[in-house]
Simulated scan of single mutants.
Amino acid sequence: MTDIETTSVSEQGFVTNSQVGDFELTIDATDEEGPNPNQVLVADYASCFLPAFRVAGQQRDHDDLGKLQIDAEADLDDDDDLSTVRFEIYVEEDLDDDELDEIVDRAEGICHVHAALRDDLHAEISAEGGAF
Rank of each mutant, 00 (worst) to 15 (best):
V113S: 06
R86C: 03
Y90D: 05
L100W: 01
D120S: 06
D119L: 00
A115E: 15
T84R: 08
A107L: 01
D81M: 12
R118P: 07
V104Y: 02
D98F: 08
V104D: 15
R118G: 11
D77F: 04
E108V: 08
A72T: 10
D78Y: 02
V104M: 03
A116N: 12
A116W: 00
I103M: 11
L95F: 05
A116E: 01
D96V: 04
A107P: 14
I110G: 10
L76P: 05
A72L: 06
E99R: 12
D94E: 14
L121A: 10
V91F: 10
I89T: 12
F87Y: 10
L117T: 10
D80V: 07
D81V: 01
T84V: 03
V104E: 12
D79A: 05
Y90S: 11
I89M: 04
D81H: 14
I89W: 02
G109S: 11
D79N: 14
D105P: 09
S83F: 06
I103W: 10
D101I: 04
D79R: 15
A107C: 08
R118L: 09
H114L: 01
L82I: 15
D120K: 04
D101N: 08
D75T: 09
L100Q: 15
I89K: 14
D105W: 00
A74H: 08
D97L: 07
A74I: 03
E108G: 04
D96T: 05
D120H: 04
D98Y: 08
V85L: 15
C111D: 08
D71I: 06
E102Q: 13
L76K: 10
L82M: 13
D78V: 02
D71G: 00
D77W: 05
D101S: 06
L121K: 07
D94T: 10
T84G: 11
D105E: 13
R118D: 14
E88N: 14
A72H: 11
D77R: 04
Y90A: 15
R86P: 04
D80K: 11
R106L: 05
E99W: 09
D80R: 13
D77V: 06
R106T: 15
D71C: 12
D98K: 14
E88Q: 10
S83I: 12
L82F: 03
A107I: 00
A74K: 07
G109C: 03
R106N: 12
L76N: 10
A115Y: 11
H112V: 14
D81K: 07
E102G: 09
S83K: 12
H114E: 02
D80H: 10
L95N: 06
D101C: 02
E99K: 13
V113Q: 01
D119H: 11
I110C: 05
T84P: 02
D75A: 13
E102S: 10
A116G: 11
E102R: 15
A107K: 02
